[in-house]
Write a protein that binds this DNA or RNA. Structure first.
Ligand SMILES: [Mn+2]
Ligand SMILES: [Mn+2]
Ligand SMILES: [Mn+2]
Ligand SMILES: [Mn+2]
Lengths: 135, 135
DNA sequence: GCATAAAGTTAGTCGTTGCTAACTTTTCGA
DNA sequence: TCGAAAAGTTAGCAACGACTAACTTTATGC
């Protein structure tokens, strides 16, 4: 029992950066038409070298494509992951706000919490947002 | 705004292992009178070498003391961190169960979520557990 | 009491995620 | 148009947190 618990948390963290990056890339493309490394540098507050390394890993893992000095594109898989991550993120953030947490805190906390929310917990959040707290 | 968000998540992760370890050490001492490396090997499902490395870091950071081949002891700081972490963990887990999430899922999800829950969100959880969902 | 099993230590490796510094390419405005 | 600023690349470094393998120390049971 207990052994599985921490393995799940470690697995969640292994996919976390990929989820946040594809989400940010999709959002930037939706907003400005294309996503440049510098957009991600600003978004994540890391250096351009770090973004470059991370994008190389995402490309290795089939989530993005890039050509030298060109904007970053998402693959079909990257777009699917971005859509799922964004939806989950929105539900978690809305749920925190519905709890009475300030929008600012909800934005901060949801950024970490989202990656540890299982399907079952996400469904519970969705149900409560729609039908209210269980009696 | 956005830049600070991900910094907070990265900071949460930096303290996560320490929090989980001191919590596990305190629980083991409470249960069996002392905590051995092997207790942590079983609890976290990592190798003995990994536990050894981690304990060395905790000692460097003033959270535990060890003598060669002796059980692991918590410092005063370690005990304080363990108590705070355990309390926060319990609130998060209870809150998930109150949401209607199964105890097993609540145990798994809370293990990751706990580290990203701010004081404000923790207070909202406590209030809802006591006074119900905000109208 | 001693052999062996269990526990602990140490050395060395790897991937991730961060950094700085030096360089190249592209973009833009005077 | 061309030179400087911005953006992107590459190399090299480090901490963390995981691993295996080889070794030493302690505990246990016969
Ligand atoms: Mn996100
Ligand atoms: Mn996130
Ligand atoms: Mn935890
Ligand atoms: Mn996390």
């Amino acid at each position: 029992m207990a052994e599985r618990i921490h393995k799940r948390t470690r697995d969640d963290h292994a996919s976390e950066v990929a989820e946040d990056y594809v989400e940010a890339i999709a959002d930037t493309i939706a907003e400005k038409g294309r996503c440049r490394s510098m957009d991600l540098v600003r978004h994540f507050a890391v250096t351009h070298a770090t973004v470059n390394n991370t994008i190389a890993r995402l490309q290795r893992d089939g989530l993005v494509t890039t050509e030298r000095y060109q904007p970053i594109e998402l693959t079909a898989r990257g777009r699917r992951l971005a859509a799922a991550s964004r939806k989950r993120h929105e539900i978690v953030q809305s749920f925190l706000e519905a709890m009475g947490v300030s929008p600012q805190t909800a934005a901060i906390d949801s950024e970490g919490i989202e990656h540890h929310v299982s399907k079952e917990t996400l469904q519970a959040m969705t149900r409560i947002l729609k039908d209210g707290w269980p009696t």
